[in-house]
């Protein structure tokens, strides 16, 4: 088998220039987006590099997990990562390496009329390119996943902003799903900020919470009670008509807390209770 691989490598080396030209033409014709995204120069450079590596590596084996293939994996991995970040689809990304097959086969066919040998060569080429294609997919997926993780973390950090909107008055806009993790984070941030800013009032705005059920209500009550212990007052704003009706039917009792329908009313209430005026 290694004889075949060596011969394949030789054949590849011999026709490298021709294959390279054909590959580039194919890429420009078939994967316009991809070429546009990485630029013509980089495409030329990458294709040349991959092809050069390819013929050199074939004679040492066809398992791309081998150490020899490290450089090759790096080129394709970097390319795949770049394309992920540029929002290329996985099939577009994989077109890069898979189109090499289409460039090699016609050249080999011209060179070799002997069907049996040609078959063997193409099998070798296929085996390696398929692995490289899968590798491209894997890297693509990994980069996507790490992107999602980063975004999750970034989201968690901004998920509970505490804004000082007036002297001794804080505002905490709550958005989305209020689960226990975020409630915990919200409580901690709110209580620390109350202390740091010497604030007396915290306005919790729930306009951005789509469904206010008993769990959300319980979290709000807990946060408000904790603030109360510190001598601060919690005003819950953003209770729209539909939420108000729902809460009453649900039997949630928020009568122990100051509530308002709009943030503006909440601010007015907060100014009054801290005996301040605007202007």
């Amino acid at each position: 088998m290694s004889e075949i691989e060596k011969k394949t490598a030789e054949l590849l080396k011999k026709n490298e220039k021709q294959i390279h030209e054909l590959w580039k033409t194919l890429l420009i014709a078939k994967a316009k987006n991809l070429v546009e995204m990485i630029g013509l120069d980089r495409m030329k450079e990458n294709t040349l590099e991959v092809l050069g590596q390819f013929s050199a590596l074939l004679s040492s084996g066809t398992d791309i997990q081998m150490d020899d293939y490290r450089q090759m994996r790096k080129i394709l991995g970097d390319l795949s990562k770049d394309l992920t970040l540029k929002n290329m689809s996985p099939s577009e990304t994989a077109t890069f390496i898979f189109s090499l097959k289409d460039a090699i086969v016609p050249v080999f066919q011209k060179e070799h009329k002997d069907d049996r040998l040609l078959m063997d060569y193409i099998l070798v080429i296929n085996r390696v390119i398929d692995q490289l294609g899968l590798y491209t997919f894997e890297v693509y997926l990994e980069s996507r996943e790490s992107l999602i993780r980063e975004q999750q973390q970034a989201f968690m950090e901004v998920s509970v902003p505490v804004v000082k909107i007036w002297d001794r008055i804080l505002m905490i806009p709550l958005v989305g799903m209020l689960d226990s993790t975020r409630t915990q984070l919200m409580m901690e941030t709110m209580l620390t900020s109350l202390e740091d800013n010497q604030a007396n009032v915290a306005i919790l705005d729930i306009s951005g919470i789509p469904v206010v059920d008993t769990l959300v209500a319980r979290h709000l009550v807990t946060a408000a009670s904790a603030a109360k212990l510190m001598g601060a007052e919690c005003i819950i704003t953003g209770i729209r008509a539909k939420i108000s009706q729902t809460l009453v039917q649900l039997g949630v009792d928020l009568s122990g807390f100051s509530t308002c329908s709009t943030l503006a009313d909440g601010l007015r209430m907060a100014l009054a209770s801290t005996e301040q005026r605007i202007g």
Partner: peptide, 20 residues
């Protein structure tokens, strides 16, 4: 009934859902 809970919650979810 309101206030009945075995899960350390407010105990109004089930009855509340009925009212809703």
């Amino acid at each position: 009934e309101p206030g009945f809970s075995t899960a350390n919650s407010m105990g109004i979810g089930l009855g509340g859902a009925k009212n809703l």
